[in-house]
Amino acid sequence: MRVAILSALAVLTTACVSQRWPNYDASLYAISTEPGAPAYEAHAKLLEAWSGDEGGLPPGLAAEEGFYVGLLGRFDQAQVLFDLEVKRYPESAAFVAALRELVIPHEASAAVKATP
């Protein structure tokens, strides 16, 4: 009986934790089928849950959030997220530099590059 309760609990816990990634996939699919501000906003909101926890931040997700908030015009927030990605995952430096070029208006990007 106790085993049954324990295994039921284990299944429930797994279900809750694993729901995060399926939500991520679905949100990404929504962007690929209907790109635009509502889909970007929803995806950025989902990613916030990860970027708020630097220690548990999976690779690429802060850069991804930065990209979408940048597209939404929130450049300062985008820069903070790009910095976080490079700090946590230095291997992302070249990629994040390319993302900054894409979403940050030219002056802002030049200012960031000037400060090492």
């Binding site: 990404l28 699919y29 690929s32 690779p59 991804e64 990209f67 990629f95 894409l102």
Partner: peptide, 28 residues
């Protein structure tokens, strides 16, 4: 294709790789 593209990154990330976010990478 869209469905596969949206669902490939998460298992790879969980498998322990640095995955460049799929959609932003297309724009780059």
């Amino acid at each position: 294709p869209g469905a596969f593209q949206s669902t490939i990154a998460s298992p790879l990330i969980q498998r322990g790789y640095y995955i460049f976010p799929v959609l932003p990478t297309l724009d780059v």
